[in-house]
């Protein structure tokens, strides 16, 4: 449904495979995400969705295949991986805010250390993004004092502070109480409407329908189907995606 124009390829994954010991976690993944595009990745648990997006910023190391992020190849053991990571924002299922730092310090630490900007300047950026996730009044609290939904919104703001070119969401609402989910999804929808390039691993099919340009369905470490939301939900082309959808939406 997005009206934003879709531009040049931002993430290009070709022939990506990964094993944990002898277990094949990912097999021959090919996916290109262009700037401005919103891709939702879904599939049963253990299907390699998280592993795939974690390879993009090398929190997981792949063994075979190539990944390009904004024209730069990322590979295991590379130097300057930090430079790539600064262009790739990531939001985790379990928030992973730094509990010993206040909310605003959680946001300023990245820009201050990475870009060497002053505390005042970093705070200004931080407050801008805290306002954007509607949580500026909590700036001086510590993460454990916030609700799960608030923590996740802070985590989104923390990623945005680095002005990333792409945002990765790794099941951002799976650890939240039901009444907290809408607040976080709203932020993500706003972000999508502003034209941010996004790859979201999520089970929120309502969100997927509303925001996604493409749905990527994975099972057992492979991409089984890639389709536009309407096609995917109304007319899935494989048995595995049919089964998955019936389990997810059936009751």
């Amino acid at each position: 449904m997005s009206d934003n124009k879709i531009g040049t390829p931002l993430v290009e994954i070709t022939g990506l495979s990964k094993w944990y010991g002898d277990f094949s976690a990912l097999y021959d993944i090919n996916l290109t995400v262009s700037s401005g595009e919103k891709v939702v990745v879904c599939g049963p648990s253990g299907s390699g969705k998280s592993t795939m997006i974690r390879c993009i910023n090398q929190l997981e190391e792949h063994q075979v295949g190539t990944i390009f992020v904004d024209g730069r190849e990322v590979k295991p053991g590379m130097k300057n991986i930090e430079e790539v990571r600064r262009d790739v924002g990531m939001v985790f299922q379990s928030f992973n805010l730094f509990p010993h730092l206040s909310v605003v310090d959680n946001l300023t630490i990245g820009p201050m250390r990475n870009k060497g900007i002053s505390k005042a300047e970093a705070t200004e950026i931080a407050m801008h993004f805290l306002e954007r996730v509607h949580i500026a009044e909590q700036a001086d609290k510590y993460p454990p004092q916030l609700s799960g939904g608030q923590q996740q919104r802070v985590a989104i703001a923390r990623a945005l502070c680095l002005k990333p070119k792409i945002m990765l969401f790794d099941e951002p609402t799976s650890a939240l109480d039901p009444e907290m989910i809408a607040g976080v999804l709203d932020i993500m929808i706003e972000l999508a409407e502003d034209g941010m390039t996004m790859i979201c691993v999520t089970h929120e099919m309502g969100f997927a329908r509303k925001v996604a340009d493409r749905i990527v369905f994975m099972d057992e470490g492979e991409i089984v189907e890639v389709a536009e939301p309407e096609t995917f939900f109304n007319n899935p082309s494989t048995d595995r995606s049919k089964l998955f959808l019936s389990q997810l939406l059936g009751h």
């Binding site: 985790f92 730094f98 630490i109 250390r113 990475n114 680095l162």
Partner: peptide
């Protein structure tokens, strides 16, 4: 220190030294 803390620190692009000094060691 939880794995998630290391990952979050790396994901915001901190250098290995800063990950240790700012995130892991204080905790």
């Amino acid at each position: 220190t939880e794995k998630g803390q290391w990952e979050a620190a790396r994901a915001i692009g901190l250098s290995p030294f800063n990950v240790l000094r700012d995130i892991v060691i204080p905790q």
